[in-house]
Structure formats: structure tokens, C-alpha cells
Amino acid sequence: MSREEIFFDAITNLREELVEEAQEYVFRKHSWRRYTRLAACLALTAILCLGIYRSARNTADAGNSSNTAMPPSGEYDGCLEDSIPEAVRFTASVLEVRADSLLVSTAEYGPVEVPTAGLENLPEVHEKDRVTVRCERISLEDGLCRAVGVTAVVPADA
């Protein structure tokens, strides 16, 4: 009898309770595959949702810019830089007149800082006046919206 066969015989005569326990034991599935599939499905769903959202937003932006160049009111939360369109015009109330900027309040973006340094034909404005601002875009800096590339600030009734 070879050594392997002696070993085989030794395993044959293992304690009965160990053998019985092994027969009753139910292996718990190592479910990394299941979780991987779940994660892949979630990622795919998220990508699809993002694509649909962006597509819908681009369509809405295109429609609005061709009519008034105004951002669609109520669509932006005023805080996400991604959601603020370029080449915008908005009407706002002046909150504060500073040496080289205005702090205005808008319905769309909340408070916006409008730099006025170097701006030609800047009218005399006071607090609570309503003005229309044209700029290239609005960026979010340190939690405050800021008009970039301001081309005009005129009284709202002009």
C-alpha cells in the first residue's frame, strides 16, 4: 500500500462528527460576483440618467438662447457652475454699490457680484435700483456667483 493510500485510509477514518458536520454544512456563497454585477448595473443606470439629463438640458438651453439669450428661470439653482449658461443677460436689484463692483440680487442665481471696473457708460446706480446686466458667463467663486466678462450694466427700464 502506498503512502498516499495510507493517507487516504486515514481520511476515511476521520471522526464521525467531523464528517457529519461537513455533510450538513451549507457553504455561504462568496458573492463578489453578484456585487460586481450590481455595481455595474448601478453605474450604467447613473450614466444613462446623466446622459438623458444633459441632453434635455442642452435642448432647453438651445431653445432659450435662440429666443432671448436669458437663462430659463427656475431651471438653475444658482449654485452649480455647470448649470449656468454662457453669454447671459439678467435683471437684478442692486444690493450694494462698491468702488469697482456691484452686488446685485437675482431671482435665478441669488446674490451676484458684477465687476464694473473699466466698464464704459456705467450709469449712476443706487441701492435698490433695478439694472440689466450683460456678461459672458457667471462663475461660482468661493460660494458667491460672479459675473465674468461684463459688457453692459444699464437701468432695467432703459
Binding site: I6, A10, I11, L14, R15, L18, E21, Y25, F27
Partner: peptide, 24 residues
């Protein structure tokens, strides 16, 4: 063989239930 069975049984008892069942 008999003594070897006992040594293997002792070793099996030191394993986790899953490893023990797997081996058996």
C-alpha cells in the same frame, strides 16, 4: 492509519467550519 486519522481530525478542528467542510 488510525493514529494519523486522529492527528488529521485534530488539525481539522483547528480550522474554520468552512475550511473543515471544504477539506472533508
Amino acid at each position: 492509519s488510525g493514529e494519523l486519522s486522529e492527528l488529521i481530525s485534530q488539525w481539522l478542528e483547528s480550522l474554520t467550519a468552512e475550511d473543515r467542510s471544504l477539506f472533508i
